[in-house]
Design a protein around this nucleic acid. Sequence first.
DNA 1: TACATAATGTTATATTATAACAATAACTAA
DNA 2: TTAGTTATTGTTATAATATAACATTATGTA
Lengths: 132, 132
Amino acid sequence: MHKEHNLTKNQKIIFDLIDKSSQPLKAYSILYNVKKKGIKAPLQVYRALDKLVEIGKIHKIESRNAFIACHNSSCQVAKATAFSICEICEKVTEISSAGLSKYLANFKDKDGMKYSKYNLEFFGLCKKCTLK
Amino acid sequence: MHKEHNLTKNQKIIFDLIDKSSQPLKAYSILYNVKKKGIKAPLQVYRALDKLVEIGKIHKIESRNAFIACHNSSCQVAKATAFSICEICEKVTEISSAGLSKYLANFKDKDGMKYSKYNLEFFGLCKKCTLK
DNA sequence: TACATAATGTTATATTATAACAATAACTAA
DNA sequence: TTAGTTATTGTTATAATATAACATTATGTA
Ligand SMILES: [Zn+2]
Ligand SMILES: [Zn+2]
Ligand SMILES: [Zn+2]
Ligand SMILES: [Zn+2]
């Protein structure tokens, strides 16, 4: 579960925008959309994004350079993330699978090395796009 | 196993550089290093990189915007990739685990959706950095 | 209060990646 | 082999993503 963080003004403005969005948002699209709220420079956006990622309120979709709000109450503050990405419509969904996260959290490589963090991105077609 | 692709001049120059490197290389660092071979513009690098990724000779490390040669004979032409990344020294290793790839290839989400492709990046400390 | 820490505002710049178009090279099918 | 096709290259310009540096303001805490 997410610890309650008291978001600052900029963080709140940017989180609300991402949270309301049905798809991941890119930094400069966020910037464009919050100009009317007084956020004028890329750095203001990136600083808020960094913080929001750090506290686990949002995640970065690395392959898309885009940000999505976390709706997965069991996800361990950005330490273990998994997403499905539709290659046609770009719909992104956070995967919440106890089996998967257990498997990955316990995964050891040949050297027996354990990892503190992972990010997994699956690609395919979403339901809608499969039917087309 | 990698199908033999006849690389073009630029593709070969750039693949050789990445293949010889012990760590992932970034596009503009590649550009800098192949200037003496007549490759002068970013696009020439990006085009070669795109092709090399497409045919599975290299992979992109998404979280680092960097490229690494594939040394994993069982990896299915860029459709199923897994890496470990050291958060201190940035050493990247391609993970070759039959168990892992089987697990992920067969993973189905709640909707029973299967995926054609995935990329997994683990983060932690490599052996060297753990001992420090 | 006074000090430390975090967040903000602002300008400039670095880094990563693609658009657009012309010219060659390589492949394919009469 | 030759015309047509596709892939690759060269080149210039520009778009998109992200950070450096520094001054200022707000917040938390002793
Ligand atoms: Zn999450
Ligand atoms: Zn779709
Ligand atoms: Zn590989
Ligand atoms: Zn290391």
